[in-house]
Amino acid sequence: MSYAEVNGVNLYFETHGTGRPLILLHGGLGSGEMFGASLAAFAEGHQVILPDLQGHGRTADVDRPVDYALMADDIAALIDHLGLDRPDVVGFSLGGGVGLQLAIRHPEKVGKLVAASAGIRRDAFFPDLLEQQAQVNAAAAAFMKDTPMYELYARVAPRPEDFPRLLDKIGETMRRDFDHTEQVRGLRVPTLIMGADADMVPPSHFVEIFALLDGGRRDGGWMGDGRPKGGHALAILPGTTHYNIIDSPLFATTALAFLDQKA
Rank of each mutant, 00 (worst) to 15 (best):
A40F: 12
Y153T: 07
Q54I: 05
M1H: 12
T241N: 08
R176K: 09
F210I: 01
A103L: 08
L102S: 02
V48H: 05
L113I: 03
L129F: 15
Q183L: 13
L166I: 08
Y150H: 13
G99S: 15
Y150Q: 07
F13V: 03
L11D: 13
D162P: 02
D73Y: 00
A198S: 15
A142V: 09
K229N: 11
A103T: 01
F210L: 01
F178D: 13
T173D: 04
S204I: 06
A60P: 04
R165K: 14
G224A: 02
F92V: 01
A252Y: 00
R20T: 12
L167R: 08
F42N: 01
L192H: 02
A4E: 14
D177I: 05
G83K: 07
V90E: 01
A139W: 11
P203Y: 00
A233E: 03
I236P: 00
G19E: 15
D128S: 08
A255C: 10
G28A: 13
L212C: 10
N137I: 13
D52A: 08
G231Y: 08
L82V: 04
L82D: 00
H180Y: 10
A139I: 05
M223T: 07
V114N: 00
K109N: 08
T240A: 10
F143W: 03
L130C: 10
V66Y: 07
E14Y: 03
G57D: 04
D168I: 00
E108N: 09
Y153G: 01
G95F: 14
F13T: 01
D63T: 12
V9A: 15
R175F: 14
A196H: 13
D225P: 03
Y3E: 07
E5Q: 14
A115P: 08
L152K: 02
L50W: 04
F92G: 00
